[in-house]
Every structure is written in C-alpha cells, then in structure tokens.
C-alpha cells in the first residue's frame, strides 16, 4: 500500500511517499513551498518510477498550523484523492508531534495573539485538542511536566521550559512522526473527501475581533 503524505502546516513543506508504512522517499521544501508543492510531488513519483495512479491513499496534515499553508495542502490532497478515488487520511499536527516521543506527553504550538494550541496524550488516548491563553496552558503543563514529555512545534515557549530535559522543540514534523501518526489516523472516503476542511481550531483573527 503506497501513501503520499503532504505536510504544509509550517514553514517547511514535506512531501513523502511510504510503502506499507516504510519510507520510500522524502523531501523537504524550504523555499516557496506553495509554488513548488506539486512539482515536488511529481518529482517524488518520478524518482520511484511510479505514476499518481499507483498511489493507494493520500494523507495530509490538516492542522492546526499556517492558515494559508493548510488551505494549499488540504486542497491539493482532497483534489488528488477525489480524482484518483483513493481514501484520504487527515493527520493532526499535534498528533504527529506526540508520535515523535513516548507518552504521556503534552504537545503545543503558538496560535498567535497570546494563544496556544495544545493537547495532552496519556498512555492510552489523547485529550481533545484545544486553544487557550498561553499562560494558562503553560502553567497546566508545568504542574505536570516532571514526568512527561513536552513537544513544541516551533520554539516560542522554549525559555519557559529551560532546564526541562523532556522538552523538545521541532521546526517541522519529521518523516518518522508523520508515518507514526499515519498509522493511527482514520481515513475518510468517497463523498466525505470533498467536505474535509483544515483543523484551524479557531476563527480567523477578523472574526475573533468582531466577537469581542
């Protein structure tokens, strides 16, 4: 089973192809990912001497993350799955972060405007992802952090965890983390593919301002 995995949630874009959850090829775009995403998908397929029709499923990181990045990646993945008639697997950013270390753990990322996306992963299942004020989230984590991993997407809160050897900062979701998350994420099929939207987790800043 061949899976194309796209991640456009952060400053880097990752395109990887797995075969039965083993990495076949992986490429990171550092420059203008929006423009070069499809060109890279094409190149990755060519490297493996396969065509889009050889893909058995498409996976995409659906957020939270960059608003525009997610729109580009989710649209690209939905359209590929729609044409190729394959299942589509949405991967949450925070789940992929959690997949990169042992549980229990906390994952978090800056949501802007003094807010933070986060989730706590116990040894069995995960807490709902949420967005709350940074200080509230960090206090909650610090009260719990002696025994658990803390994984941040980016390094905005690094100083708040100084001296904590279980704090990890990641500037992108590594292939192993994406593949691990791929294994545990459910797929959507058929008519449901068209209605997939990114997990923005919060309204746009304009709507937030309007509601205040």
């Amino acid at each position: 089973m061949r899976t194309l995995v796209l991640d456009t949630s952060g400053p880097f874009t990752t395109v990887l192809i797995t075969e039965d959850y083993q990495l076949s090829t992986s490429h990171i775009l550092r420059d203008r990912p929006a423009e070069h995403l499809h060109e890279q998908i094409h190149a990755s397929l060519e490297n493996l001497c396969i065509t889009p029709q050889d893909l058995s499923q498409i996976a995409v990181v659906i957020g939270p993350g960059s608003w525009t990045g997610l729109n580009i990646g989710v649209t690209a993945a939905k359209t590929l799955a729609q044409i190729l008639e394959t299942p589509l697997i949405p991967i949450y950013t925070l789940d992929a972060l959690a997949a990169s270390c042992a549980k229990p753990s906390w994952t978090l990322m800056n949501a802007g405007r003094n807010q933070c996306y986060y989730a706590r992963y116990s040894t069995s299942d995960s807490q709902e992802m949420a967005v709350d004020p940074i200080d509230t989230v960090i206090q909650q984590i610090l009260a719990d952090s002696n025994s658990v991993y803390v994984v941040e997407y980016g390094d905005t809160f690094k100083e708040r965890f100084t001296g904590n050897d279980k704090y990890l900062s990641m500037d992108r979701l590594p292939p192993e983390a994406l593949i691990a998350a791929l294994k545990t994420s459910g797929s959507i099929e058929g008519a449901d593919i068209k209605s997939l939207t990114p997990a923005y987790l919060q309204p746009s800043h304009v709507e937030q301002d309007a509601s205040h």
């Binding site: 094409h42 729109n71 649209t75 690209a76 590929l80």
Partner: peptide
C-alpha cells in the same frame, strides 16, 4: 492559491 492548488492537482493526477 486555493484554486491554483486544486488546478495543479488536476493537471498532475
């Protein structure tokens, strides 16, 4: 960028 992303996927697939 949304329309362009969809169009590129169509061209590719």
């Amino acid at each position: 960028v949304v329309g362009v992303s969809a169009a590129k996927s169509i061209a590719l697939a």
